[in-house]
Computed example of a mutant assay.
Amino acid sequence: MKKLYYTSFFYAVLGLLAGVFYREATRHNGFTGETALSPLHTHLLVLGFMFFLIVLGLGKLFGLHEMRSFGAWYLVYNLGLLITIGTMAVRGMLQVKGSDIPSLPYIAGLGHLILGAGIIWLLVLLGKRIQRV
């Protein structure tokens, strides 16, 4: 349970820092257009901070953290989120600097795929615990 709290706390801090980073990076470089850095703040706060607070509550209610595969789910979801967030940050900074990496959307797609699998996996775990109640 503490791991879920600390993970939520980590993503809250990272999300707030991402908001400040977006503002300062674009201001410092004189960038005024759209960039992948702008939704980074929201993605971190919703898919990281708030998501893990919800999982913490579900864990308390249904004992999700006691399930055998919960640890593997935790790693998969965080891997998908970190790949997705990492590619957003890299792409955003490249956009601010005026360049891009053509293969970056494929890496972001992989992160989204892993993240989606993690969400489905969590729902399966939750479904198994609800059936027991």
Results as ranks from 00 to 15, higher is better:
L14C: 15
I83F: 07
L115G: 04
N78Q: 06
T32F: 08
G92S: 03
A117L: 00
P105W: 08
L40N: 01
L113T: 14
H65S: 15
W121F: 12
V76Q: 02
L126H: 02
R132C: 11
V46K: 04
S103Q: 07
Y77C: 03
F62I: 01
A25I: 09
L110I: 05
W121A: 08
G111S: 13
I54M: 02
K3F: 15
R23T: 13
Y74W: 13
M93H: 04
F52E: 06
S8G: 15
L126W: 12
K128S: 14
L47T: 08
L126E: 06
L122H: 11
G118V: 10
L81D: 01
L37Q: 02
A72H: 03
G15A: 10
K2Q: 15
L45K: 06
Y77K: 04
I83E: 07
R68M: 09
Y106I: 07
V96I: 11
F21K: 05
G92N: 03
L14D: 10
T84L: 07
Q95M: 14
N29D: 13
L125N: 05
L40E: 05
H43A: 04
F70D: 01
L47I: 02
G15M: 01
G127V: 07
V55E: 09
L94Y: 04
G33L: 12
L115H: 05
L123N: 01
S8R: 00
L125T: 00
G98K: 00
L110M: 03
L123C: 05
F31H: 09
R132Y: 09
L17K: 07
R23L: 11
